[in-house]
Design a protein around this nucleic acid. Structure first.
Lengths: 139, 139
DNA sequence: TACTTATTTGAAACAATGTTGCAAATATAA
DNA sequence: TTATATTTGCAACATTGTTTCAAATAAGTA
């Protein structure tokens, strides 16, 4: 499941910060916030480098934003469905309000939404909040 | 359309900061961020009071959060559909990436989403981004 | 391999967003 | 009018995010 050439594929120079941060995304089951990443790499890289790496990954379509209704934005790896080639992006994320983790639900389709006249949609984000299977089973 | 007793209705003491901030929401056609509000009331009230008023309004169900994939969260007045009484909250918002304004689309229904087994939803937020009628007509 | 150049990084400074503790001020009820 | 619980302002702090610029480095070329 690892993509050793994901950087090259996106025309990005291979640097240790990018490889390391990419590895974090590849091995995480849930979306990561800046602070999640900072915790892991603060010994090796500067804060600013983390922010810049995230922005670069976003710009090149390596990761996408994951909405959060709390403090900070989160990010997750793009899959085949959300390549730049696609004419528009749909994302469904589930945030567990108990453990705080947010997962991409790639298999859930957003039914087509009928917008009022005059609105033109480019990107659709659905954030569902509730309790995840793990936390539900621990109640 | 103004609710002079919206504060009393929510068991909130009537203070000038609350009335003023509530008025901003009632007269705005789009969701407001902290900085939108701060711009209007900084001469009269302290920053902290604005943050605390927003939190109080959220806690009491006067306003709800409006997701944004950029800098800061936004807020908008709750309507009849999103009272605390309801067992769960559904929100549809449209953000125009040209003018930056976000509107509540109260008339748009979120079709029911089938979640994978084990997930329990409490709140659903749909953020649609694109171009609003006003900006479309100015192209 | 060594050189060249464009890109990336770290460090410092700054700006915006958001929270907490505490004393002073004020809304409401008696 | 007074008593009390709530709200406010202020100071201090914490987190999140950006910009500038010089130093370091990745990658292509001689």
């Amino acid at each position: 499941m690892l993509h050793p050439d994901l950087l090259k594929d996106h025309n990005l120079r291979s640097t240790s910060s990018r490889s390391e941060i990419l590895r974090l995304f590849e091995t995480s089951s849930h979306a990561l916030s800046y602070s999640d990443i900072e915790k892991e790499v603060s010994a090796s890289f500067d804060r600013v480098t983390v922010y810049r790496t995230l922005r670069t990954f976003l710009d090149r379509g390596v990761i996408h934003k994951v909405l959060d209704d709390g403090g900070a934005l989160k990010y997750a790896l793009c899959n085949e469905h959300c390549r730049v080639a696609e004419h528009h992006h749909d994302h469904v994320h589930f945030k567990c309000t108990t453990c705080g983790e947010t997962q991409c639900l790639d298999d859930v389709e957003i039914p087509s939404i009928k917008l009022p006249k005059g609105y033109k949609a480019k990107e659709v984000n659905l954030l569902i909040q509730g309790t995840c299977p793990t936390c539900l089973s621990e109640l």
